[in-house]
């Protein structure tokens, strides 16, 4: 799965959590601030990605991944 596909996937999963706002996110926006996510929301995102991609985003990494670009890059390095 390439970077663009992963960004689209992230948008879809974020849209499940906060409907109707993920499409307008820029690649370099801090998506937590933009979508007003809390730690429960982010955990939900991590759980959804784990189920779909079998990629685990460890606790220690989650806090560092602030943008769609960074998050997709992190996933890209771990998905086949």
């Amino acid at each position: 799965m390439n970077h663009d596909a992963l960004v689209s996937l992230l948008r879809r999963r974020l849209d499940d959590i906060v409907p109707g706002q993920a499409d307008s996110l820029d690649l370099d926006d801090d998506f937590r601030d933009e979508l007003d996510l809390d730690s429960m929301d982010v955990l939900k995102l991590v759980r959804a990605l784990h189920e779909e991609l079998k990629v685990d985003v460890p606790d220690t990494e989650v806090g560092r991944l602030r943008t769609l670009r960074d998050f997709a890059s992190f996933l890209e390095a771990r998905v086949g």
Binding site: V46, R47, H50, D59
Partner: peptide, 17 residues
Amino acid sequence: LEARNASRPPTERVLPA
């Protein structure tokens, strides 16, 4: 908490809250 979460899948993770 971090050590506990590291060995578990996301579905079993516990937040500081």
